[in-house]
């Protein structure tokens, strides 16, 4: 599988413009070996989709990229993840610093039980931005960026939980944009949404690509095919294949990838 990675398109060997360079990453939950020798290079301003059946480690991997996986107390890791050429597991690399650069959108919308305004202003505020005028601008810009400004501009002071699930998820994306991260990690961001909301979020991801590097875990293969530039197929904690999305979905090299995307299992 490492071969397929290296034999892939030439752009993969070019180290410039790489946000995440994962080298020989292994991860264990207690005795369970959840990620095995992962090697992946993720480029900036691209949408990278991670697909695979349940329990293949795709969510674990994306949560490792901002070290949220360490909330599980039994987690052990080995190997390296270089974010902008710096190993995120280094002792002097604070998780807060990393997570300020790498935002995350979760599977279930999880806005704070606060007003819409306070949800978006939360990030800038904890990172020291107090000026009301600047905050107002950030809130508007972020909500526009998440394509929800028009829907909520007249009720910024209402509780975010009064919104629909799809709107809440876009609030979460706006909250993430508010600190203008470098990378946005999305862990099945549309799995709890209805088809119309899903479409809106997908369109949004396409727009965000210009300014952000996006890594998205998805259960939905059509979604991966629609929105991503590159796709990684995970199976039992290993990367089976990683290539341009159109290659993965038309002429995959590995038989298992073909079986999965043609719906023979998973």
């Amino acid at each position: 599988m490492v071969q397929s990675l290296e034999n892939g398109s030439n752009t993969l060997n070019d180290t410039s413009g790489i946000v995440y360079n994962t080298q020989q990453l292994n991860l264990w939950y207690g005795n369970h070996h959840a990620l095995k020798d992962i090697n992946l290079q993720i480029k900036e301003n691209e949408v990278t989709a991670i697909i695979g059946p349940s329990g293949c480690g795709k969510s674990t991997y994306i949560k490792t990229l901002n070290r949220m996986v360490e909330l599980v107390p039994t987690v052990k890791t080995s190997g390296k993840i270089l974010y902008r050429e710096r190993n995120i597991f280094d002792n002097d690399y604070g998780v807060e610093e990393l997570r300020t650069k790498v935002g995350m959108v979760f599977q279930k919308p999880n806005p704070f039980p606060k007003s819409i305004y306070d949800n978006i202003a939360y990030g800038p505020r904890i990172h020291g931005i107090k000026n009301k005028k600047i905050l107002d601008q950030i809130v508007e810009k972020s909500l526009r960026g998440a394509a929800i400004w028009d829907e909520v501009k007249d009720r910024l002071n209402t509780n975010a939980y009064s919104l629909s699930g799809g709107q809440q998820q876009r609030i979460c994306i706006a909250r993430c944009l508010a600190i203008e991260p470098d990378v946005i990690l999305m862990d099945e961001p549309t799995s709890a949404l209805d088809p119309i909301s899903t479409l809106k979020v997908e369109e949004l991801i396409q727009e965000l690509k210009a300014d952000y590097s996006i890594i998205i875990v998805t259960h939905n293969m059509q979604q991966a095919a629609r929105i991503s530039d590159k796709t990684a197929f995970f199976l039992s904690g290993e990367v089976v294949e990683f290539d341009q999305t159109d290659v993965i979905f038309s002429t995959p090299e590995d038989k298992r990838t073909e079986d999965y995307i043609s719906g023979r299992f998973g």
């Binding site: 949220m68 610093e97 979760f106 999880n110 990030g123 904890i126 993430c176």
Partner: peptide, 21 residues
Amino acid sequence: SSIREGALAMGSTKLEVALKV
């Protein structure tokens, strides 16, 4: 805990999560 995770993923410290969220 999903709300805590949301705050942690924005780069909040534990204390910020506790006091502000």
